[in-house]
Design a protein around this nucleic acid. Structure first.
Lengths: 337, 337
DNA sequence: ATGAAAGCGCTAACAT
DNA sequence: ATGTTAGCGCTTTCAT
């Protein structure tokens, strides 16, 4: 059998209360007893059972992290910083991939609640807002990451999507492009990026057409299909702003198959700045999210809510940064010729 | 307060034992009572506390997954299939990134034990074998993934590294290359790949030189440095077999900076077949590991050990598959001219 | 068919 | 300074 606090108490000839105190470094006692207990714990290779501790009413010191798909580099990179910061704060994290699927969302949310996680970090598109509201009602700490839905009134850590969209479009516009498509995801953050895209056009006095605004789900395949539908409709623009790197790569691949060169025939901008944007050739121009800082911040915030038993409700906005690499180029404007 | 089994029992006018039975679908009872209990559970939105259940002596239904770095696409892709399969089997997984760092290995292994995980999946390079032996002694289920260390005598799921190394080298050799470097990782699996590399040379009757066998840790940066050291020593080969995609990409990047073209001046083969190998241009020729099948298998195996309370000790070997893409080419052999 | 009660390993008053 | 004891929410004999 596993060695329990009773075994330690007996071996050290003290009561379990005393052992408990040295484990948790609480209460006062003679230094000699503390040492004696410590020693026997070592000898017996005793490892306190955190399940039992959790049952005592204390917290489980674990966080639930819900992402659409951990194999997507953006989320795995984010997960890594979250994991690190959480451990620094003495917490572990259980992550689940929801695939933007209602059933999985429900299943995992419930599972994690049953596991008594102390709080949730929900990243990006979480479809079922009702489920989230339920969490909030039950006073379970929740922080949204990368998806700022004001309606929820919950603490949020995200990038300034509007600004990101604005800058991406502005850059393209200032490079002479006047025919710019945007491929967005079906999520709130993309909505803001589209607003930015629109306002950049207005600011530049360039009109845009609604049929250049597409929506899809993040994947290389879908990015490719979007490009193809544009191509098949004879609506190939001179530039495409994809709302994440995966889609951008799909667009590039689609363009290549149709014999178009990037950036000569088509400029492409991605979003996120994952490892993919640097390994691709030509390297992807993209709007970078400060993943490391965001991951750290989101942990600090949820931990504060968990430990402080208070809902912060703040909305932390990080600044995106356009990183110009090789998939964008000036448009040779024939009007200027 | 959260609703407990007592609340349900009271509301349904039965004892907690009865409620417990309907939760677990054990014992027998009148159908009407079962329905009544089920109904009140719904009404009260009751969610059984798995922490309490776990304390009862039953298992926690959670697995510990230790990987070097979850942000490495190979591991995040693997983690995804593991996560999915685990949930299908009714288990959750807590993953931790060890960074091949002794302290983290120890810390996480201990933490997960304290959390009473039912078993461990340890992926790739786990430095401290002593820690693993301790686990085994304590009869805690453990399965190694992607790292076949016969000395441990533990169940292992991995790819046939020897074969992978043999095929990669053979392919290069048959393409006319006679000067092939191999950049390995400092792990057991790489050792086998090197053996394959050597034997392929012997089989082809081509000699190889020891200074073309390098060792490093998986990262783009390190792959690049390795290439540079080769370059600086005036030992640039005609082909390089990198023991994973990250390193291969680093090599390609390093070569590019030195003005070499891939595959014209240098052929490169990677290992793993992660998403990176397809997004890179030129697309990476690589030795594919069947990630999805391996992830599924490793879960099935550990679950069997956990539930069956027996150590399988089998060693499952998957077959690697060379995927020829665009970073390898025939060597124009001047001798043939 | 149902319930009473012991016990899982630990924490936290409350005693001594 | 230490120990006793009552839970935490649930499972599981063992009675009834």
């Amino acid at each position: 059998m596993k060695t329990t606090i009773y075994d330690v108490a007996k071996a050290a000839e003290v009561s379990i209360a005393t052992v408990s105190k040295v484990i948790n470094n609480t209460g006062k006692m003679r230094e000699s007893t503390r040492l004696k207990v410590l020693k026997t714990m070592k000898e017996l290779n005793y490892k306190p059972n955190v399940v039992a501790t959790a049952l005592t009413g204390k917290s489980t010191n674990t966080l639930g992290l819900l992402v659409p798909d951990i194999s997507n580099p953006f989320f795995s990179e984010m997960a890594r910083t979250i994991e690190d910061r959480a451990h620094e704060q003495g917490m572990s994290v259980i992550m689940c991939s929801t695939d933007e699927n209602l059933e999985k969302e429900k299943k995992y949310l419930e599972l994690l609640q049953r596991k008594q996680v102390d709080g949730f970090i929900v990243a990006s598109s979480f479809k079922d807002k009702e489920l989230l509201k339920e969490l909030i009602q039950n006073k379970i700490p929740l922080v949204m990451l990368t998806e700022d839905d004001p309606a929820l009134g919950v603490t949020t850590v995200s990038v300034d999507d509007y600004k990101g969209g604005f800058e991406a479009a502005s850059y393209l516009l200032s490079s002479g492009h006047k025919d710019i498509a945007i491929i967005a995801e079906k999520v709130q953050s993309s909505r803001m990026r589209i607003h930015g895209y629109r306002d950049a056009h207005d600011a530049a006095g360039v009109s845009y057409s609604e049929d250049l605004i597409l929506r899809t789900t993040a994947s290389i395949e879908n990015g490719k299909s979007c490009f193809e539908s544009l191509y098949d409709n004879g609506r190939v623009p001179t530039a495409i702003f994809a709302c994440n790197d995966l889609i951008a790569i799909g667009v590039i691949r689609g363009a290549k198959e149709k014999g178009l060169y990037v950036p000569e025939d088509l400029s492409v901008i991605g979003f996120d700045d994952t490892i993919l944007s640097t390994t691709t050739v030509p390297a992807l121009t993209t709007v970078a999210q400060p993943i490391a800082e965001m991951g750290k911040k989101v942990v600090d915030v949820i931990v504060e809510e968990v430990k402080g038993h208070k809902k912060l409700g703040e909305r932390v906005l990080f600044t995106p940064r356009l990183i110009v690499r090789e998939t964008t180029s000036l448009l040779e404007n024939k009007d200027l010729a």
